[in-house]
Design a protein around this nucleic acid. Structure first.
Lengths: 285, 285
DNA sequence: ATGCCTTACGTTATACGTAATTATT
DNA sequence: AATAATTACGTATAACGTAAGGCAT
C-alpha cells in the first residue's frame, strides 16, 4: 500500500527540487529520503524520477504523481477537519433565535443545565427552520408555533415591547405609547436581524436606530445618556443593570406583543428536555 | 500523519462488523487491530467507535470517517492505475488507421524497428486527428495529407482496390469492373470502420457484406470458398497466403484509389523517423 | 572544493504477535 | 462454553541515521 508519508515526501521534493533540501525540510537524512522514494517507485512499479549522475529530476510520470499526491493529501486533511468539526458540534448547543431577548435567558440556563457543552447562539431573520433541519442549529426560537413531522415545538413565553426613557423625559409620564407617536425619535435598539428591531424599522420610517452591537452606541450613550431604548419583558427580566431612573412605557400596538416557541428536532427532544422545562413565570408588571 | 493502512483497516472493520473478523481478513491479530484503531482515533483527536464492554461499534463520526476513507483509498488506487497506464503508454506504439491494409505492413515494420515496444493498433472511421492530438494514438494513417501546427505528415503510399475471385468465376476474365456492375454480389470485406469497407457499403446498397472480424466468415468460406473478396495493393503485398487460383480484377471507379499519409506529433518526429523511411516500392501489377 | 546522490552497515521506532484477562452472550 | 475486546509484554520489520564514496559543477 502506498502510504501518505511517502506522498508527503514526494511533495517536499517537488517543492524543494533536490533530495537534500527536501530531506532537511522533512527532518530526514538524504539517504533515508532517497530510499523512501525508491520504495515508492517500486510499490507503484513506475519510475518517477530521471536519475542522473549527480541529480534527480521528476519525469512526466513523477509530475503526474505529484498532482495525485496533492489531491490525496488534501482529502486526508479534509477528512481530519470534517471529523474535528463534527466532534466539536457534539459538544456544542447551538441556538438560533428570531430575537435577542430569549437568548439572554436561554444561554445562562443552558450553560448551567449542560455544563459540559459550549453554548453558541445567533440572532437572525433568516430561515431558522431550515437551519434546524440541516443541523446548523440544535434549537431555535420562533415567534409562532410549528407543527412539522420530525420537529418538536413547545410554547416558551410571551414578550412585550416597552419604550425605555429616563425619568424626566417628556414622555416619561405616559401610560402607553404607539409606534406612530414615536416615529422620528432616535433609538438604541437590539442587533440587526432581531425581529423587534425589524419591526421598529418598518413601523417608524422617520426614526434613526443605533444598534447594540455597534460600537457607536457607546459614544451615543456617553454623549447623551437619555437616548431612549426599546426593551421588552424578557430583556428586563434578564438584565441586571437596569438604570434606577428608567421608566418603561408599554407600547400599545398589537404587533408589540409576541409569543415565543422553542423548537428542536424530535430525535433530540429527550436531550433538551431540561431546557424545555421550568420556565420562569412571566414578569409581573 | 494518518496513513492509508489505517484507513484500510477501518474499512475492513466497517465491512466485517467486528475487530476479530476484520483482523482475520487483514491477516492481523485482534490486539494489533484494536491498537491500530486507537492510534487512528488519537491522531484524529476524534472518537470513531462506541466502545462497549464486549463490542465496538462505529459511531456517527466513525461512519463519516468511513466515507472519507473510501474516497481517499479510491484516489490512491486511481493514482497507481493512472501512473501504470502512463508507463504502459511509454512502451507502446499505438497506430490508428483509416484502413486495415496499412497496418498489415506497418505493424511488422514497427515491431522490427522498435523491438522493445508493444504495438497496438486500431482501424476506425472516427476522428483520428483528434485522437493523435490527445495522445490516444502515436501515429495515424489518413487518406489525405494534413498541414497542421504541431503535426508532422508524410506521404506513405497509394492503394487501389481489386475484386478477388477464383479462376473460373463468371467475372474472372474481366480486365476491370465498376461498383455499379458488382452491386448485388455478396462480399467478404475488411473490418467495420475501414474506409474501403465503408465505401463498398455506400456504393453497393444491394450487396451483402461479411466482415473479416466476424466468425461467420469462416463458415461462409468453408461452405462456399468462391465467395468474392475485395482486396487492395497493400493487402496483396502483405498477405502471404494468396490463393494460387485467385484473380484480382482492378476496380475502375476513381474512388477505388487512395493515397495514404502517415501523421505523428511534431515532438515525436525524431522518434518515429525510422518508420517514415524506406517504404517498399509500390507493387508491380 | 562544494553540493548532490548513492551504497553499506548499524540503530531505533513502531507496528505486530503471543499470552493472559475481562466481559458478554 | 464461546465470542469479543483489551492489557501487558516481547519481537521483528522497516524506516531511519551514520559513515563513506562517486560524480558532477
Amino acid at each position: 500500500m502506498i502510504e501518505n508519508y511517502q506522498l508527503e515526501q514526494l511533495l517536499a521534493f517537488y517543492d524543494c527540487g533536490t533530495l537534500s533540501a527536501a530531506a532537511e525540510r522533512l527532518n530526514l537524512t538524504e539517504p533515508s529520503l532517497s530510499r523512501s522514494m525508491r520504495r515508492l517507485e517500486e510499490k507503484l512499479g513506475v519510475c518517477l524520477f530521471d536519475r542522473r549522475k549527480n541529480r534527480v529530476v521528476l519525469n512526466e510520470a513523477g509530475r503526474l504523481a505529484v498532482t495525485h499526491a496533492q489531491q490525496i493529501l488534501s482529502c486526508v486533511e479534509e477528512m481530519a477537519q470534517h471529523l474535528r468539526l463534527y466532534e466539536q458540534s457534539l459538544h456544542t448547543l447551538t441556538i438560533g433565535s428570531c430575537a435577542m431577548g430569549p437568548l439572554l435567558e436561554l444561554r445562562p440556563r443552558a450553560a448551567s443545565l449542560y455544563p459540559t457543552l459550549n453554548i453558541s447562539s445567533a440572532v437572525t431573520d433568516g430561515d431558522l427552520l431550515q437551519g434546524l433541519r440541516r443541523g446548523e442549529y440544535d434549537m431555535i426560537v420562533l415567534a409562532q408555533p410549528v407543527e412539522e413531522e420530525g420537529l418538536f415545538c413547545r410554547e416558551y413565553r410571551s414578550d412585550r415591547l416597552y419604550l425605555a426613557v429616563v425619568r424626566g423625559h417628556p414622555l416619561a409620564d405616559r401610560k402607553s405609547i404607539s409606534f406612530a407617536e414615536m416615529d422620528g425619535i432616535s433609538f438604541i435598539v437590539h442587533p440587526r436581524g432581531d425581529m423587534w428591531t425589524n419591526l421598529l424599522i418598518a413601523k417608524m420610517p422617520h426614526s434613526s436606530f443605533f444598534f447594540h452591537e455597534n460600537p457607536d452606541v457607546l459614544m451615543i450613550v456617553a454623549q447623551d445618556p437619555t437616548t431612549p431604548t426599546v426593551t421588552s419583558d424578557i430583556v428586563l427580566d434578564n438584565t441586571y443593570e437596569v438604570r434606577a431612573d428608567q421608566v418603561n412605557i408599554p407600547i400599545s400596538d398589537p404587533e408589540g406583543r409576541a409569543d415565543f416557541y422553542l423548537v428542536c428536532r424530535e430525535e433530540d427532544r429527550k436531550k433538551w428536555t431540561p431546557l424545555f422545562q421550568n420556565f420562569r413565570p412571566p414578569r409581573s408588571c
